[in-house]
């Protein structure tokens, strides 16, 4: 803390209130408050993740009944990657596409709520959150009705010639990506709105005063200032989309299966824990590494 900071804090002139200086009892109270929550995460998040990593190295020749032996079988990873490469790649492509689409759709919506909604702002926000309260699965199944082969959407697309006369939407990548985009769109809109709403409209006026062009002002002021929202929104969309298998299961066919389907099936149907765990670990590592790289590039490290 520099002297200037101290001076400012003392006079209470900064917007931020001065940090409360912890009292003597502050140390132990802090640990007590943290303890139950962190313990919960250690036992039910960290320990399982370690166990998952261990399971991925078990001998895949074992079975659930006979028990697995720890053989440090790194070969499981080669098996998993070679067998399910297609589903891995598809997951990343679908998730990236859905995230991109959600950003494309979510930005104008968040922008309109933040700057154009006026007194309807709260109502619009409610509308964004409202779908949350209808079950995820029920909503996804509704897309089955919307995209049904003889439904209005398909008929319309056929009549304008976008879709071939025997073409369909259901059971295609289009349906799966539509579902993914739809399901995670609120996760994109809310953080975007939060960061857009913080922008002082006077900054845009100042920008227009200096650049004299609405689009340039948008590009040079609004977009950079909304970056934290863009980063948070894309992460909150990408992470669940990459691991999702509800959309590919309900709206697609095995030809649209993602890595989530594989993990679910290998764990729960084939009961091949080591290979399933290897898939899981790969997914986690890929997602976490991508997230960290992305966060570092975007330069917003204070997400938590």
């Amino acid at each position: 803390m520099s002297v200037a900071d101290v001076g400012e804090t003392l006079e209470g002139r900064t917007g931020k209130p001065p940090r409360k200086r912890a009292r003597r009892s502050g140390w132990s109270t802090g640990y007590l408050l943290l303890l139950p929550g962190l313990l919960w995460l250690l036992v039910f998040f960290v320990a399982p993740t370690i166990q998952l990593a261990a399971t991925s190295l078990y001998d895949s020749a074992g079975s659930l009944e006979a028990g697995y032996a720890m053989t440090w079988s790194f070969g499981n990873y080669l098996d998993a990657l070679s067998t399910y490469r297609e589903q891995f790649v598809r997951s990343l492509i679908y998730a990236t596409t859905a995230t991109g689409l959600a950003l494309l759709l979510g930005y104008p919506l968040a922008y309109a709520i933040a700057f154009k909604a006026g007194r309807f702002k709260n109502l619009m926000l409610m509308l964004v959150i409202a779908p949350f309260f209808t079950s995820f699965l029920v909503r996804t199944l509704a897309w089955k009705s919307i995209l049904a082969d003889n439904g209005a959407v398909v008929e319309t697309l056929k009549s304008v010639g976008i879709l071939a006369p025997d073409g369909r939407l259901l059971a295609t990548s289009v349906a799966v990506i539509t579902g993914l985009t739809y399901n995670f769109l609120p996760f994109m809109v809310l953080p975007l709105y939060a960061s857009l709403e913080k922008i002082d409209p006077r900054l845009l006026e100042a920008g227009k005063d200096l650049y004299a062009n609405g689009f340039t002002a948008f590009r040079k002021i609004t977009v950079p200032l909304s970056m934290p929202g863009v980063v948070a929104g894309t992460l909150l969309t990408f992470i669940p989309a990459a691991g999702d298998y509800i959309n590919s299961e309900l709206l697609g066919t095995p030809r649209q299966y993602m890595i989530g389907n594989v993990i679910d099936n290998t764990f729960l149907v084939q009961l091949n824990y080591p290979i399933a765990a290897a898939c899981s670990v790969v997914l986690m590592v890929v997602v976490v590494v991508m997230v960290l790289l992305y966060v570092r590039r975007a330069g917003t490290e204070d997400l938590v």
Binding site: G243, I263, S280
Partner: peptide
């Protein structure tokens, strides 16, 4: 490390969390 521990569950796909819990429970 505390902040990281809070952040990680949000950065982990559900299918990973679900399967790792199953791995723990069954072991």
């Amino acid at each position: 490390p505390t902040s990281l521990l809070i952040f990680l569950p949000m950065a982990t796909p559900e299918v990973v969390m679900g399967s790792s819990l199953l791995a723990l429970f069954s072991s």
